[in-house]
Amino acid sequence: MSVKSKIFSAMKQIAEEQKVTLPPLEDDLPLNETGFDSLAFAILVARLEDELGIDPFTVAEDAAFPSTLGEFVRAYENVPA
């Protein structure tokens, strides 16, 4: 399974747990329109750290969080192993 599909499936699971209805997951979807609040994103980052073994936002030099879903996925794809 690709990183992208792992992220999407984790999001779908959290959406179900948090009773959030996700819009269609497209690259240019702004994160603040996913229906996820900051708590849901924190859970997502923690689950992905377990599944992928990485947390790109701790490794990153700057404190900026991505603004679209595509940027979020790329943050995980671009982490050096």
Binding site: E17, L39, A42, R47, D50
Partner: peptide, 8 residues
């Protein structure tokens, strides 16, 4: 805590 969050 964020793993506790993921575990609920």
């Amino acid at each position: 805590a964020r793993h506790m969050m993921a575990d609920g």
